[in-house]
């Protein structure tokens, strides 16, 4: 089992599912950001596994994985900047309390 593509894909799906659950269940902006990173890592695991097990894909897998890592880094940068900005305004990281516009 440990050397089959399906095992890795299931693991990546689980990581992605845990990330999604964290995003939907946690109410702390930082935790939600971390959950998104976990989802992206799940995606990366799937990409690398495809690249390793299917010879026709060649080096594409590594290239795509690197791109995903770069995008994730850019997203985290922007996200943390926004979290800092809102923390200065609202003094709380809890998204449930960001409800000034709800009618």
């Amino acid at each position: 089992m440990s050397d089959s593509l399906d095992a890795y894909l299931i693991l990546s799906g689980l990581l992605f599912a845990i990330g999604s659950f964290g995003f939907l269940a946690r109410r702390n902006a930082i935790s939600m950001l971390m959950s998104i990173e976990l989802m992206l890592n799940g995606v990366n695991l799937a990409i690398v596994a495809f690249g390793a097990f299917i010879p026709e894909l060649g080096a594409q897998g590594s290239v795509i994985a690197l791109m995903v890592i770069a995008v994730a880094a850019a997203e985290a940068t922007v996200g943390l900047a926004i979290v800092i900005a809102i923390f200065r305004n609202k003094k709380t990281p809890l998204v449930d309390e960001y409800d000034a516009m709800r009618q």
């Binding site: 995003f23 902006a29 939600m32 950001l33 998104i36 922007v78 996200g79 926004i82 979290v83 900005a85 809102i86 305004n89 609202k90 998204v95 960001y98 000034a100 516009m101």
Partner: peptide, 11 residues
């Protein structure tokens, strides 16, 4: 309001 909109949009 601006940062609140931004964080919802971002997440």
């Amino acid at each position: 309001n601006s940062t609140e909109g931004a964080i919802k949009y971002f997440l």
